[in-house]
């Protein structure tokens, strides 16, 4: 269980508070207008931004003082998820450690085949389609095998069809009972389709996650405003 304990995030005029937990074995969608602080919240969890007060805990243990690579967290960023000068295998292999030789580890090929990229090991990202690049990045997250996975709109550049495909892949390959996945999106359809629970971010507060079906069946005012209904 990932817990945000009385978290306070400030950056200039911006302010965001969060106090809640995310269950393992679920995909939680974070939705809200742009500028609400969705990505900033992820940055606090993966260690790139320091909160003003409060704690982040995983399984009851604070992880605030850990470096990004020491945290039990893997992130798919909005862009720049692959090094363009390395082959796909080398990119994925970096999940095992800071050595390019890990690219030839058998586990790399295994993960690539799991995401449907068999035979693409030696290619560089520029020779892959957008969807294939996303799959390669996903393969690395699989190989990193961290209990918390953050998806920061990683598929937003893909078309709707591909995006759906990728989100399905996330659910089928990445979601395990002991893993907690947070998905930032601005598209309610993505949330409805791929998440178990939804946390709304608005008015400087993160609302506690609510089961997706329940939320959309009975949307609160804030969601209505956001959705324009």
């Amino acid at each position: 269980m990932l817990t945000l304990d009385a978290l306070e995030i400030t950056q200039g005029d911006f302010r965001l508070g969060a106090d809640m937990s995310f269950e393992a074995g679920q995909v939680t969608a974070l939705i809200g207008p742009s500028g609400a602080g969705k990505s900033t919240l992820l940055s606090v969890v993966n260690g790139f931004f320091r909160q003003t007060s409060g704690r982040v805990l995983w399984q009851g243990k604070a992880i605030d003082d850990l470096q990004p690579d020491e945290r039990p967290v893997a992130t798919l960023f909005q862009d720049n998820n692959l090094f363009p000068h390395l082959t796909i295998a080398q990119n994925v292999g970096l999940a095992l450690g800071p050595k390019l030789s890990f690219g030839s580890d058998p586990r790399v090929a295994e993960m690539l085949s799991a995401v449907g990229l068999t035979g693409m090991e030696g290619r560089k990202p520029a020779r892959l389609s957008g969807g294939q690049q996303s799959r390669a990045a996903l393969a690395r997250v699989l190989l990193m095998d961290r209990p918390i996975v953050l998806l920061d709109e990683p598929f937003s550049a893909l078309g709707p069809g591909l995006r759906t495909e990728m989100l399905d892949l996330v659910r089928s390959k990445l979601l395990t009972p002991d893993r907690c996945i947070l998905l930032v999106t601005h598209d309610p359809d993505d949330a409805r389709r791929s998440s178990d629970t939804v946390a709304l971010i608005d008015d400087s507060e993160v609302a506690p996650p609510v089961p997706t079906e329940e939320l959309f069946a009975n949307p609160p005012e804030r969601l209505k405003t956001y959705l324009g209904i």
């Binding site: 990004p68 690579d69 020491e70 720049n80 970096l94 450690g97 800071p98 050595k99």
Partner: peptide, 14 residues
């Protein structure tokens, strides 16, 4: 690439 590198533990000389 700082964030990606940090997440992957690519530090120092590596």
């Amino acid at each position: 690439y700082a964030r990606l590198s940090d997440m992957l533990g690519l530090k120092g000389w590596a």
